[in-house]
C-alpha cells in the first residue's frame, strides 16, 4: 500500500472530467481483510445505491476499527464487477439466511492511501457516498464528499418535466442586458426566477446591471409587467408551486416567443 499525490493518480489526462468514486462502509475486520488481502468488496444488490457505478471504491471505517475509525484513508481502483449469490462469495457460510441473495462484487486493484485521511468530525453514519476521486483526494471532511445536484439543475429538469415554457439564462424584452436563471413568459408579463445560492449567487440582473439596487430590479420588472421570484433555498416542489402560482397570477404561460437571447 502506498501513498501517491493527485497528479500521479490522475495520470496524464486531468481534463478527462470527474472520476466516479464510491465511498463504502467497512464495519468489520473480516470484510477489511478481504479488501486488503483478497482485493474485493461486496454490496447486497437490493441495497445498492442509485449510483453504484464507480471507477474507485474508498473505504470508511466504522467504530469497529480503533485508529482508523470514522475516517477514510484508503481507496482502490475497481478492476471489474460481478453479480453473484452470497454463497458463492462466501462459501464457508452456506446456511446464511441470505445465502442466495445477489451481491455486487467489486474486484479491486491494490489499495492506495489518500494523501491525507478524510475524517468524519460529526461522526456521520455513513453507508454509501457517491462522489468523485478528485473530491476524495482534496476533502478535509467526509461532509465535503457529498455531491448534491444543484438546485438549478434540478429545477431545470422539473420545469421541463412539468411542461413550463421556461428558458434558462435568458433575458426579458425591455431589459436588454439582464439575464435571469429562468424566465417564464406569461399572457401578461412573465415570471423571472433567480436562485441566490452557491455558485449562482449574485448572477442575473444584479450581475448584468450592477448599478441597479435590488429595489430597482423590482420596479423595472414591475414596469414591464413581470415578477421576480428569488430563492435562496427550498425544495424543488415548493419552488415549483411558487412558480406555478406566479405564472397563474400573470394569466398563464404565453407561447409566443418573447425572449431576448440568453448569454
Amino acid at each position: 500500500m502506498e501513498h501517491r499525490g493527485m497528479h500521479d493518480i490522475l495520470g496524464t489526462d486531468p481534463s478527462a472530467g470527474e472520476t466516479p468514486a464510491l465511498v463504502v462502509l467497512v464495519n468489520n475486520l473480516a470484510d477489511w481483510r478481504r479488501v486488503q488481502e483478497e482485493h474485493w468488496y461486496r454490496i447486497p444488490l437490493r441495497r445498492a445505491p442509485r449510483l453504484a457505478g464507480a471507477a474507485y471504491l474508498a473505504f470508511y471505517h466504522s467504530s469497529a476499527f480503533e485508529e482508523e475509525r470514522w475516517s477514510i484513508r484508503w481507496y482502490a481502483p475497481v478492476r471489474s464487477v460481478q453479480v453473484l449469490p452470497r454463497h458463492m462469495l462466501i462459501p464457508d457460510e452456506p446456511a446464511h439466511p441470505r445465502a442466495h441473495a445477489l451481491y455486487l462484487r467489486y474486484d479491486l486493484g491494490p489499495l492506495e492511501g489518500l494523501p491525507a485521511p478524510v475524517p468524519s468530525r460529526r461522526l456521520r453514519r455513513v453507508t454509501f457516498i457517491p462522489t468523485t476521486l478528485e473530491r476524495l483526494l482534496s476533502a478535509g471532511d467526509v461532509s465535503q464528499l457529498w455531491i448534491k445536484q444543484s438546485l438549478r439543475e434540478r429545477l431545470w429538469v422539473e420545469l421541463n418535466r412539468q411542461g413550463f415554457h421556461a428558458e434558462m439564462d435568458a433575458g426579458i424584452e425591455g431589459l436588454p442586458d439582464a439575464v435571469f436563471d429562468f424566465v417564464v413568459p406569461c399572457e401578461h408579463g412573465g415570471v423571472a426566477v433567480d436562485l441566490e445560492q452557491g455558485e449562482t449567487a449574485g448572477r442575473g440582473y444584479r450581475e448584468a446591471l450592477p448599478a441597479y439596487a435590488p429595489a430597482d430590479i423590482a420596479s423595472e420588472l414591475q414596469r414591464l409587467g413581470w415578477s421576480r421570484l428569488c430563492f435562496e433555498r427550498g425544495s424543488v416542489p415548493s419552488i415549483m408551486q411558487r412558480i406555478r402560482e406566479a405564472v397563474d397570477a400573470h394569466g398563464g404561460m404565453r407561447l409566443r416567443p418573447a425572449l431576448t437571447a440568453g448569454r
Binding site: G11, T19, P20, R50, A52, A54, S80, V81, L104, Q149
Partner: peptide, 26 residues
C-alpha cells in the same frame, strides 16, 4: 450529468466492460 455512459478510463488503467455495465444500470 454525473451519470457516466461507459468506463472511460484509458487502457493503462484497465477499463472493464463490467464497470460500464454498472454505469448502465445506474
Amino acid at each position: 450529468p454525473r451519470l457516466k455512459t461507459h468506463d472511460g478510463r484509458r487502457p493503462p488503467q484497465q477499463p472493464h466492460l463490467s464497470v460500464s455495465l454498472l454505469y448502465l444500470r445506474d
